[in-house]
Computed example of a mutant assay.
Amino acid sequence: MPYYLQRIIELIKRYPGVIAIGGFASGIGSFIMVDRQASLASWIAVIMLVSWVWLMLENTFTQWFSRAFKRNIPEGLLRYATQMIHQESLFFVLPFFYITTTWNSGQLVFTGILTVAGLISIIDPLYYKWVAPRRWLFMTMHTLTLFAAMLTALPIILHLTTAESFKLALGTAMLLSFPSLATSFPINSWKRGVMLVVMTLAVGGAGWLLRSWVPPATLWMTESAIATNLDNQNRTPGDDIKTLTASQMRGTGVYAYTAINAPRGLDERIYHVWRFNGQEVDRIPLDIHGGRKEGYRAWTHKQNFPGSPVGKWQVRVMTEDGQMIGVLRFEVTDDGTPAPAQ
Rank of each mutant, 00 (worst) to 15 (best):
residue 194 V to M: 06
residue 222 T to C: 08
residue 202 A to D: 06
residue 196 L to M: 14
residue 195 M to R: 00
residue 210 L to A: 13
residue 218 T to F: 14
residue 184 S to G: 03
residue 213 W to K: 06
residue 188 N to Y: 11
residue 210 L to H: 05
residue 149 A to Y: 07
residue 215 P to T: 08
residue 161 T to V: 10
residue 159 H to C: 13
residue 217 A to C: 13
residue 199 M to K: 08
residue 189 S to Y: 05
residue 180 S to I: 01
residue 183 T to H: 13
residue 178 F to P: 03
residue 213 W to P: 09
residue 169 A to W: 04
residue 153 A to R: 02
residue 170 L to A: 14
residue 159 H to D: 09
residue 221 M to L: 15
residue 148 A to K: 06
residue 223 E to W: 10
residue 182 A to C: 03
residue 157 I to F: 09
residue 194 V to D: 03
residue 169 A to N: 03
residue 193 G to K: 07
residue 200 T to C: 01
residue 191 K to M: 13
residue 149 A to V: 14
residue 218 T to G: 14
residue 166 F to S: 05
residue 170 L to C: 10
residue 203 V to P: 07
residue 197 V to R: 01
residue 186 P to E: 04
residue 193 G to V: 05
residue 151 L to S: 12
residue 149 A to L: 04
residue 162 T to V: 15
residue 209 L to K: 04
residue 223 E to M: 09
residue 203 V to W: 05
residue 158 L to S: 02
residue 208 W to C: 06
residue 177 S to T: 13
residue 213 W to C: 14
residue 184 S to P: 01
residue 191 K to S: 12
residue 175 L to Q: 10
residue 214 V to C: 05
residue 209 L to A: 15
residue 182 A to I: 00
residue 187 I to C: 09
residue 196 L to P: 12
residue 154 L to F: 12
residue 148 A to S: 15
residue 185 F to M: 00
residue 196 L to T: 10
residue 172 T to I: 12
residue 211 R to C: 13
residue 154 L to H: 04
residue 158 L to V: 00
residue 174 M to G: 06
residue 212 S to A: 13
residue 157 I to A: 05
residue 150 M to I: 14
residue 153 A to Q: 01
residue 206 A to F: 12
residue 159 H to W: 10
residue 174 M to S: 11
residue 158 L to Q: 02
residue 217 A to R: 08
residue 175 L to F: 13
residue 205 G to L: 08
residue 211 R to N: 15
residue 187 I to K: 03
residue 179 P to C: 03
residue 201 L to Q: 04
residue 174 M to H: 05
residue 176 L to H: 11
residue 216 P to H: 12
residue 172 T to N: 09
residue 167 K to E: 10
residue 155 P to N: 07
residue 169 A to V: 00
residue 161 T to Q: 05
